[in-house]
Nucleic acid binder design. Structure first.
Length: 224
DNA sequence: AACCAGGACGTGA
DNA sequence: TCACGTCATGGT
């Protein structure tokens, strides 16, 4: 079972996922599970502007260990108040920001993370951040940094998350204890370095895991 | 009604 | 390094 085969199998089964979800983009994904919306299936021209870029980054922080529908509530609360922007986030006192993003969980920690990131983002002045610079921001770890680079900045950085580990571990392609960078290199070495492939691969693994890796014991009907 | 979700950080060994 | 506790809402 090669990663290319996994990719093609999942792509054949679910089709393009069109990540990252955006509030202003209607969900048209025929394979969507649950309440997830905001797809732009088959269109890889995103983000189309700076507002969408920041929304993706904010979502990457808010979705840490959190289900997307809750993240969407928080993002919508920010958008409704017209503060889903670096300036908007920084205009709020941290407790007020925390109240707005309450639904996403860990709201105190995430309010601080959003503010730290908004300040960093402003300092970028439109430049693409390096991975190392992102990792220096408090609240941005490896997965969050790679999600931002891959989906907000169009950089070919493989995203490894709990689902990636779960699926690849179940298929015995990686050890369950392998660290982030080990799994990342494993994937990067075996898939073509292509933006579409990277974006879809991560999204497809999430979709597949949501369908078949929610509860033990796993019985994967597609991969083995 | 426990269990978990597209993690990251701080601490003590 | 590494294992473990902490942060917290909402769906199943």
């Amino acid at each position: 079972m090669t990663l290319t085969h996994i990719y093609e199998t999942l792509f054949g089964a679910y089709g393009p996922q069109g990540w990252w979800p955006l509030l202003g983009v209607a969900g048209t994904n025929p394979t969507k599970t649950g309440a997830i919306r905001g797809y732009h299936v088959g269109d890889y021209s995103f983000p189309r502007n700076d507002a969408e870029r920041f929304e993706i980054c904010a979502g990457a922080i808010l979705t840490q260990n959190t289900a997307w529908p809750n993240v969407e509530r928080a993002l919508r609360a920010l958008a409704d108040r017209n503060v889903l922007s670096p300036q908007g986030v920084l205009s709020l006192a941290q407790p007020d920001l925390a109240t707005l993003i309450r639904a996403s969980g860990y709201f105190n920690a995430k309010a601080r993370k959003l503010r730290e990131f908004a300040a960093f983002y402003t300092g970028l002045a439109g430049q693409v951040p390096t991975r190392a610079a992102l990792l220096d921001v408090w609240g941005v770890g490896p997965e969050t940094a790679d999600s931002m680079l891959l989906y907000a900045y169009g950089q070919e950085e493989m995203v490894v998350d709990a689902y990636t580990r779960r699926i690849l571990g179940h298929l015995r392609l990686v050890k369950p204890v392998a660290d982030y960078d080990t799994v990342k290199r494993f994937c990067a070495r075996r898939l073509p370095c292509d933006l579409v492939v990277y974006q879809e691969f991560h999204a497809l693994l999430v979709e597949h895991a949501k369908r078949h890796y929610q509860r033990m014991p796993y019985a994967d009907p597609l991969l083995r």
